[in-house]
């Protein structure tokens, strides 16, 4: 109907071009990263022909493998834990009743966002040693969970705020109990927010360098900390290859997760 009148709000002139340019901006470093991972020369500046030897070298590097495994374990644990902690809190803050201290609670859960990372890193290090907590990788995971919570929660709250409570209330009128309302109505509707939150949490955990550097004990080195070390002596194709492998693995994981989610949704719809 609106199209017939020559106004399609879904199409803004120039926006497609703009988006394409943004994607060029966003992907340019990635292209560089991947291309140079296949560079036979060990100098990042000179193209020495196509080679996969750096992948073999990166895969054969035991310390690198260990660091990558650590990173993935920490990121998965932190994402899952932070999402599980953030979800009820987001519900409480957006759908719950007002109570004394609610504002304080709201501020507290946002605190990790406003604390400078270097301070968090030092403070956490001192704190862990004061209480004698020695879980190795567990320490890193704990520290990550903390700063992942607000990241996971923000998109959830934004989403909940945009969702009308009417549908949930309608379900209640139809004698659904609270769990049913949550499971059948609230959760499916807020799913994009939950996914966005989990993604954000995963990204910040996977990327964290400073806090991990400070908190990690022997054997708990993560990939950013290891790559930082590799890159100190220049951009070697081995570091590029390692980052490319990580990229390939995460893309696979995310794509599979998206496909599984979609199938799950279809099943629900059916």
């Amino acid at each position: 109907m609106s199209a017939a009148r020559g106004f399609d709000w879904r199409r803004t002139p120039g926006l497609g071009t703009f988006t394409a340019l943004v994607f060029v901006f966003v992907y340019a470093p990635l292209v560089v990263l991947v291309v140079y991972a296949f560079n036979a020369s060990n100098l990042a500046l000179v193209w020495g022909g196509f080679s996969v030897e750096w992948f073999a070298k990166a895969l054969g590097n035991e310390n690198l493998r260990r660091a990558a495994t650590n990173s993935v374990i920490v990121a998965v644990v932190a994402t899952v834990a932070a999402t599980l902690l953030a979800l009820p809190a987001a519900l409480a803050l957006e759908r719950g009743r007002a109570f004394r201290g609610k504002a304080a609670a709201e501020g507290l859960v946002a605190l990790p966002l406003v604390a400078p990372e270097i301070v968090t890193a030092i403070a956490t290090l001192v704190f862990f040693s004061a209480i004698g907590l020695r879980l190795g990788l567990g320490n890193v995971a704990l520290a990550h969970i903390v700063f992942c919570i607000p990241f996971a929660m923000l998109p959830m709250r934004a989403r909940l705020r945009e969702m009308s409570p009417d549908v949930e209330n309608a379900a209640r009128d139809l004698y659904a109990d609270e769990w049913q309302v949550f499971r059948r109505v609230t959760l499916p509707l807020m799913a994009p927010g939950v996914v966005a939150g989990a993604m954000l949490a995963f990204i910040v955990s996977l990327d964290d360098f400073l806090i991990t550097l400070m908190v990690a004990d022997a054997g708990a080195t993560t990939l950013p900390v290891y790559l930082y070390g590799m890159l100190r002596l220049g951009v070697t194709p081995e570091a590029n290859a390692a980052a490319t492998i990580l990229l390939a693995v995460s893309v696979t994981v995310v794509v599979v997760a998206t496909l599984v989610m979609r199938r799950g949704e279809r099943a629900v719809a059916a």
Partner: peptide, 8 residues
């Protein structure tokens, strides 16, 4: 993961 850490 905690167990893995403890083992380490």
């Amino acid at each position: 993961s905690l167990a893995a850490c403890a083992a380490g």
